[in-house]
Amino acid sequence: MKLYLGTHQPSWLGRNLGIPLLVSHRRLIGRRTFPRATHPWALDSGGFTELSLHGHWQTDAATYARAVRRYATEIGNLDWAAPQDWMCEPHVRARTGLTVRAHQHHTVTNYRQLRDLAPELPIIPVLQGQTVVDYHRCADLYEHHGIDLAALPLVGVGSVCRRQHTREVEQIMRSLTARGYRLHGFGIKLTGLARYADTITSSDSLSWSFTGRYQPGCTPTHQSEANCLRFALNWHKRATQTLPPHHPETLASAA
């Protein structure tokens, strides 16, 4: 497993940092040029922000697939990319006006579209829901369409960020692992990893940046540490040192 450091700064991809990064599509879209990645990285689709702002995806699957293909070609070293999934948090559903089942249907449909449009790209499926039953229903929906999740290198688990430290999410992760899935938990912080790091392959978190907002800048040019590379790398080092020793490959990244 890998420990991805989430960042708002695409330029960090070109820095020889010695660690893999996770960057959002929303930070890359519209750029005319990209840095060449010196290490493996992953792409978040930015779906949480997209749905929260607009109540739907403004970008269609074909356009997103072209963007991911460009990132894979021009930046290089792309480990995987998230699809245009539909989060199921209550406030997101209030914005879309749709049910959990509808969000799951849109998520699975988009993954199938992207797989057909760009089978060569490492786009991963993502499970969405709220309860344990929801996530298994979403998994069954993928399986119904002939997608063998257990055969894939990684399966994302969304809509858990704000409750990642709870017993309910632990139950979700353990029950999905029992189906043979290699899981990436979106937004899993150290409090969640302390509960169930043994069950997942990877996770992502932007907690270092949120913490840095309230830290005075380390140089006169930094008003805070929210986008400070030194602060981020120190956080990453401390995070890896505090991960459970029996699961050294746990991965933390940003959404």
Rank of each mutant, 00 (worst) to 15 (best):
T7H: 05
T221A: 14
R174I: 08
V133W: 10
C218Y: 05
D198H: 14
H91W: 13
V133A: 15
F186H: 04
H54I: 06
H8D: 10
I29A: 13
L149Y: 12
A42S: 12
P83V: 05
R238M: 11
A139D: 07
T59G: 01
L149N: 08
G180C: 06
Q130M: 12
S24N: 09
Q223F: 05
D134S: 11
A197G: 14
E89W: 07
W12M: 02
R230T: 09
T191W: 09
T33F: 02
I188C: 14
A255C: 10
L22W: 00
G46R: 00
R137P: 01
D204Y: 02
H246N: 11
W12Y: 07
A226V: 05
T219K: 07
R167D: 14
R36H: 15
Q171W: 10
Q171H: 13
L206R: 05
H247F: 11
I124D: 00
S202L: 10
Q215S: 04
H236S: 12
Y64Q: 03
A81I: 04
R36A: 12
V126F: 15
L53F: 08
H246E: 12
Y214D: 08
Q215C: 07
N16K: 12
T59W: 02
H105W: 11
A151V: 08
H8V: 09
V169S: 10
S209V: 06
A67H: 13
L251D: 01
Y196S: 04
G30C: 02
T177R: 13
L98G: 03
R26F: 03
I200G: 00
T240C: 15
V133Y: 08
L243E: 08
A151E: 06
L51N: 02
T201G: 11
T49L: 08
E168Q: 14
N110V: 04
H247M: 09
V126Q: 03
G55R: 09
G47M: 03
V160K: 03
Q215E: 13
L206K: 04
Q130D: 12
K237A: 15
V108E: 08
H144A: 15
A232N: 02
R167C: 09
G158I: 04
E170F: 07
W86F: 13
P40K: 08
N110I: 04
G180E: 04
A65G: 03
G30Q: 04
F34D: 00
A178V: 03
V23T: 03
A232P: 06
M173Q: 09
C218W: 08
A62S: 11
G185W: 02
I29P: 00
I123A: 02
W57E: 02
I19P: 00
E225W: 01
K2D: 06
H25M: 01
R31G: 03
R95F: 04
W86T: 05
I19C: 06
P90E: 14
A151F: 03
H105T: 13
A232D: 04
G47F: 00
T250M: 13
T107K: 07
E170G: 15
L17S: 00
V160E: 09
S205W: 09
S45N: 09
H106F: 15
R162I: 09
G187I: 08
H246G: 07
Q113I: 04
Q164V: 11
S159P: 06
D198E: 14
P248A: 10
Q58K: 13
R26C: 05
E143K: 12
Y214Q: 09
T107S: 15
